[in-house]
C-alpha cells in the first residue's frame, strides 16, 4: 500500500492558561489516503476543530502542538519553519471554514479573490490567473460564471459563497482538503449540493478530504472512514459502513441512537445522559465512564488503550463484550 497523503502520529495539543494546562487533544493518530474522505466526529469541545487547525499549523495562542509528526506527503509539518509551512498552505493542504460569508473579503470581487489565491503561490500573469479563476468558478458549478466573476460576495447566496470558498481552496489542486463543518451555515438542500460537489472534486483530483462534522447523516453519506473523538481522544475509528452497522464504543452507540429516525414518530430521542467533562477536571480513567451505561469499576482506573477491533480500533475495555447480538444486528440491517 502506498504511503498515506496525510499521517498524524501521536498528536497532542494543549493550551497553557492561567487556570492550568488544558489538554485539548491527546495522543491522536490517524491517516488519510489519496481520494479518501475521513470524517472526524464528536460533540462540541471534543477537539475536532483544533485538530483541523493543527493540520495547517494554525493553532492560535496560547495553544501548543506537540507530537511525533504530522506528515503531509512525507514532510513533517511540525518540524517545518513558518515560512515553508506557509508555502504548503493553500498549495498542498487547504482548508474551508464553516461560515462562507466571513471567509470572503467583502471589498474584492469573487474572481479577484480566487486570482489572489493563485498569484500567492505561482508566478503567472494576471491574465493567466484570471482564466484559471474563471475555469474554477465553472468547475464548482457556479451558473453564469463569467458574470459572477465580477460580483462582490454580498451579491451571492450562502451556497454560492461556499462554492467560491471551495474554488479558492482547490485553486492549486492541494493533496489534502480540510473541511471544518463546511455546511453548518447552509440550509439542508444546499448542504447536500455542497457535499456532493466536494465528493465530485475529490474523485476527479484524488484529493484526500478530512471532513470535520457533528452531523452523522453527513458522515454516513460522504465519508469512507470515521474517527470518533471524545474529550480530546480518539475513541473509535472504523470504516463508515461498519461503524453504523456495528458501533463498538458505547459513546458511538449513544451518538447513533440519538439520531432522529424517519418514521420515529413523536417518541423522545434517545440521549446520552450527562455532559462532556471539563478539560480542567478529567476523570481518572475513561473520560466517558461517568456517562456510560455499561461502565464498571475498572473503567475509572486507567484510560482504556486503543485496541484493534474488526477493521479499525476502539478504546473501550468492554467493547468485546457488548457486541450487538446477531439477531438484533440482522434486524438493524433490514
Amino acid at each position: 500500500m502506498s504511503d498515506p497523503v496525510l499521517a498524524v502520529e501521536r498528536l497532542n495539543i494543549s493550551f497553557h492558561t492561567r487556570r492550568g494546562v488544558l489538554r485539548a487533544v491527546r495522543d491522536l493518530s490517524f491517516h488519510v489516503e489519496r481520494g479518501e474522505t475521513l470524517a472526524i466526529v464528536g460533540e462540541s469541545g471534543c477537539g475536532k476543530s483544533i485538530t483541523a487547525l493543527s493540520l495547517l499549523g494554525l493553532v492560535p495562542e496560547p495553544g501548543r502542538v506537540e507530537g511525533d509528526a504530522v506528515r503531509l506527503e512525507g514532510r513533517n509539518l511540525l518540524a517545518l519553519p513558518e515560512a515553508k509551512l506557509r508555502r504548503l498552505r493553500g498549495a498542498r493542504i487547504a482548508m474551508i471554514f464553516q461560515e462562507p460569508m466571513t471567509a470572503l473579503n467583502p471589498v474584492l470581487t469573487v474572481g479577484e479573490q480566487i486570482m489572489e489565491a493563485i498569484l500567492e503561490h505561482e508566478k503567472v500573469s494576471r491574465a493567466a490567473a484570471r482564466d484559471r479563476a474563471l475555469a474554477l468558478l465553472e468547475r464548482v458549478r457556479i451558473p453564469d460564471a463569467k458574470r459572477r466573476f465580477s460580483d462582490y460576495p454580498h451579491r451571492l447566496s450562502g451556497g454560492m459563497r461556499q462554492r467560491v470558498v471551495i474554488a479558492m481552496a482547490l485553486a492549486l489542486s492541494p493533496a489534502v482538503l480540510v473541511a471544518d463543518e463546511p455546511t453548518t451555515a447552509l440550509d439542508v438542500t444546499i448542504q447536500a449540493q455542497i457535499l456532493e460537489l466536494i465528493d465530485e472534486l475529490k474523485r476527479e483530483n484524488g484529493t484526500a478530504v478530512v471532513l470535520i462534522t457533528h452531523d452523522l447523516g453527513v458522515v454516513a453519506e460522504h465519508s469512507d472512514r470515521v474517527l470518533v473523538m471524545y474529550a480530546g481522544r480518539k475513541v473509535e475509528a472504523r470504516a463508515t459502513a461498519d461503524l453504523f452497522a456495528r458501533p463498538l464504543h458505547p459513546y458511538t452507540r449513544g451518538l447513533i441512537a440519538a439520531r432522529p429516525q424517519p418514521g420515529g414518530g413523536r417518541a423522545r430521542l434517545a440521549e446520552i445522559p450527562g455532559t462532556v467533562p471539563s478539560l480542567f477536571a478529567m476523570p481518572a480513567g475513561c473520560a466517558f465512564a461517568p456517562r456510560c451505561a455499561v461502565a464498571e469499576p475498572a473503567c475509572g482506573v486507567a484510560v482504556p488503550p486503543l485496541m484493534p477491533a474488526e477493521d479499525g480500533a476502539v478504546a473501550c475495555i468492554r467493547a468485546g463484550e457488548i457486541h450487538v447480538p446477531e439477531p438484533a444486528r440482522e434486524a438493524l440491517r433490514a
Partner: peptide, 27 residues
C-alpha cells in the same frame, strides 16, 4: 485580525503583507 477572513487567508498561504494590504486595510 482574528476573524475568519484573515484565518482563511492564512489557511490559503497568504503572506502577512498581502493579508494587510489586500484583506485588512481595504476593510
Amino acid at each position: 485580525r482574528h476573524g475568519e477572513l484573515v484565518q482563511a487567508s492564512i489557511a490559503l498561504g497568504a503572506s502577512d503583507l498581502r493579508i494587510i494590504v489586500l484583506h485588512i486595510l481595504p476593510n
